[in-house]
Design a binder for these strands. Structure first.
Lengths: 336, 336
DNA sequence: CTGAAAGCGCTAACAA
DNA sequence: TTGTTAGCGCTTTCAG
C-alpha cells in the first residue's frame, strides 16, 4: 500500500494535475465545487502531499532548524516548547540539532543547512564558540537566523536574550544583603558573551558594595558532572572559601549541593547559593534553591515569531535588533 | 550570494552533471583523479547538495521522526540523546514532533509522515491514545515505525520498553518492607499499557504481601501541575490516607512534595514515596527521592539502532519483537 | 571512465 | 475555470 501521488489523484478525479494542485492549495482560480470534490477524494484516497517535492519546486522546506547545545536542560527544553508552539501554528516543522557544546558540530550543522534543509534557524551557540563566521556565512547565504540566549554580539541579526547583567547583579546583591562577604562566580565558559555579562553583573555588584573578588573566586566549569564536582569541591576547600555562590548553569546545582554535603558545609548557613535555572524541582530541593528563572518559553516563542515575520517577507533579512526579556529572581531557602 | 547547485559546479569543472554527481557519491565508475578534483572545487565553491532534491529522486529523506509527548521531561530528553547519537552516526537528522499528550496531534503528525517527510519513526504514544489504527496505517504505508516506552501492544512492530511490571513490583515491595500498610498508586492514564503494567506490578506486590488496595488508592493524574496538586492533596486528606506512594511520572514529584509540605506531612515519616523518574536532581531533593530510574539513553539508542537496521534492508518490515531493558531502583531518603 | 537524458512529485506560468 | 507544460536539483539508467 503505497502512498498515492497527485497524478493518481488527478486521474481518479478526471482532472488535470494542476487543477488538483490548485484546488488543494485553495486557489481562487478553482470553483468551490471542484475544490470540494478534490478535497473529498483526497481524503478518501488518503492523499498526503510529498513535502520535498513542493519544497524543491517552491524552494521552501517548511522546516526551521533549532540549533542548541543540549536538549536535556530545562531552559532549552522549555524554549523548544515556545518555538514549537508558533511553528506548529504556521504549519512548520522543527528540526532540532544538538551541538553537545561542540563548535565542530555547530559548524557542520550550519554548513549542512546551506543546502536548503531549513528555511530559517533559531540558535544558541555552544560553549566553545569563539567566532561566528559560520553563522554569518549562513545568513549571507540567504538563510535567516536568529540567536537566542547565548548570542554572538558581532553577528548582524536579531537576538533574543534575557537581562543577564542585571539579573546577575541583583542575585549578587541579594547574596550581599544576606551577609555574604566572599562570593564566587561559577561561569560556563569565558568565550560566551552571555557568560561575560553575567560575570560583569556579578563584579559590578561586588564593586558597588565594596567587596573585592579575588580571581580565585571566578571559575569556569566543564560540561561534565564529575569534573564540575571536583572543581566545586576544590573551591570550597580553599582556606579562603566562599560563603556565597552565583552559578551560571543549572547543571551546577547537583555538584554544588553534593560537594557541600560531602564537605559538611551547610547551605545556607555556611554557603549560600543562587543559580540561573529553570528546574521545576528548585522549590523542593534540600534546601530549596534560589534561582534566576529565565523566561524560556517566551524567549523561544519570541525568537520564532520574529523568524516567521522574516520568512514571510522574502528577502527581508533580519535587522540587527535586540530583544531583552527579563528574568526573575526567585528567593528560596538556599540564600535565606 | 546564493548556494551553488550541481549544474553550476559541473560547469566550473567542465564536467557533466552526472559525472559530478557520481564523484560526489564516491561511485566506482569515476577515476580517483576526477573524484579528487570534484571534491576540491566543491569545497572551495562551498557546494552543499540540496537534500530534498536527492530525497525526491531517491525516495529517502535522511530524516527520522521522533514522536513523543513532551520534550521537557528528563526521560524523553535523555532518550532523544540516545536516538540522536546513532542518527548522527548514520548521517540522519531527527525531526522531533511533540504530541503534548494529545491523540489528535499524534494522529495529525503520523498522517503527515505518510507524505514521505521521514524515512522511519520512533514513537512513544500520548496519554490519550486508546487505539492504534493511525500507527498501523503508517506502517502499512511502508514507513517503518518503532515504539518505545509507551507502546501499543497490538501494533505489529518492534517495541523497546523497560521492565515496568517488575520494577513497579519491586518498588512496591520496597515500600512494604519499609513498613507501609496503605500504598497508593499514581498512574498516568488508564489507557496506556505501560501504566497497566506498572499498576499490575503494584497490585501483585500488594497481593503477595497480603495488603489490599482499595480503589481509592489508585488514581490517575492529569497533565497539569495544579490539578495534580489538588488530586494528591485530596488523596492525602482522606481519613484513610496512604502511608506510601508509587508514582508513575516524574511530573508528580513536585505536587506530592508540595502537598505533603502544605499538609504538614513529613516524607518519609508520614508518607514514603517512590517515583518513576530520571531527574538528575532526585538525589538532592528534600528529602532525596527514591526513584525507579529508566535506561532512557539506552532505550533511545536501541530503538534507533533497530530502526536503522530496518532502513538498510529496504522493504524488510520490522518484526513484532520486544526488547526489555531493565530499570533500576535507586533507594534514597524518601523511603527510608 | 564520462555524458545525455529521463524523471522523482509538485507548482506556476501560460494557453485554452 | 481548467489544462499543458516546463522545470526545481538531483540520481541513475543507458550510450558512448
Amino acid at each position: 500500500m503505497k502512498n498515492i501521488n497527485i497524478r493518481e489523484l488527478a486521474q481518479q478525479l478526471n482532472l488535470s494535475v494542476s487543477t488538483v494542485s490548485k484546488a488543494l492549495n485553495d486557489s481562487h482560480e478553482i470553483s468551490d465545487e471542484t475544490k470540494k470534490r478534490v478535497l473529498k477524494t483526497a481524503a478518501t484516497l488518503n492523499y498526503v502531499p510529498n513535502p520535498y517535492a513542493s519544497s524543491l519546486r517552491g524552494r521552501k522546506s517548511k522546516n526551521i532548524g533549532v540549533v542548541i547545545p543540549e536538549v536535556a536542560d530545562s531552559f532549552f527544553s522549555i524554549a523548544i516548547n515556545g518555538i514549537e508552539s508558533v511553528a506548529k501554528e504556521k504549519g512548520y516543522h522543527v528540526l532540532i540539532c544538538l551541538t553537545h557544546e561542540s563548535f565542530e558540530n555547530e559548524k557542520n550543522i550550519l554548513k549542512e543547512f546551506q543546502g536548503g534543509r531549513v528555511d530559517g534557524v533559531i540558535m544558541s551557540v555552544s560553549r566553545e564558540t569563539i567566532q561566528s563566521d559560520h553563522i554569518s556565512d549562513l545568513i549571507s547565504n540567504g538563510v535567516p537566523l536568529i540567536l537566542f540566549d547565548r548570542v554572538c554580539e558581532d553577528v548582524e541579526t536579531a537576538k533574543i536574550t534575557t537581562d543577564d547583567f542585571e539579573s546577575s547583579y541583583k542575585a549578587t546583591e541579594h547574596l550581599v544583603a544576606q551577609g555574604c562577604k566572599k562570593i564566587a562566580f561559577l561561569g560556563i565558559s569565558k568565550s560566551l558573551s552571555l557568560n561575560s555579562k553575567r560575570q560583569e553583573g556579578y563584579v559590578q555588584a561586588l564593586n558597588d558594595h565594596d567587596l573585592k573578588s579575588g580571581n580565585k573566586h571566578i571559575i569556569h566549569c566543564t560540561n561534565e558532572l564529575k569534573p564540575n564536582y571536583r572543581l566545586v569541591k576544590k573551591l570550597l576547600q580553599q582556606k579562603n572559601r566562599p560563603d556565597g555562590i552565583v552559578a551560571s548553569m543549572e547543571k551546577l546545582t547537583t555538584p554544588v549541593y553534593t560537594a557541600c554535603a560531602d564537605l559538611n558545609l551547610s547551605i545556607p548557613q555556611d554557603v549560600k547559593m543562587v543559580c540561573f535555572s529553570n528546574l521545576e524541582t528548585a522549590s523542593i530541593l534540600n534546601p530549596s534553591l534560589t534561582t534566576i528563572t529565565q523566561p524560556a518559553f517566551e524567549m523561544g516563542k519570541t525568537a520564532a515569531s520574529i523568524l516567521f515575520r522574516a520568512l514571510k517577507k522574502t528577502n527581508l533579512s533580519l535587522t540587527k535588533s535586540s530583544i531583552v526579556i527579563p528574568s526573575s529572581l526567585m528567593i528560596r531557602s538556599s540564600t535565606t
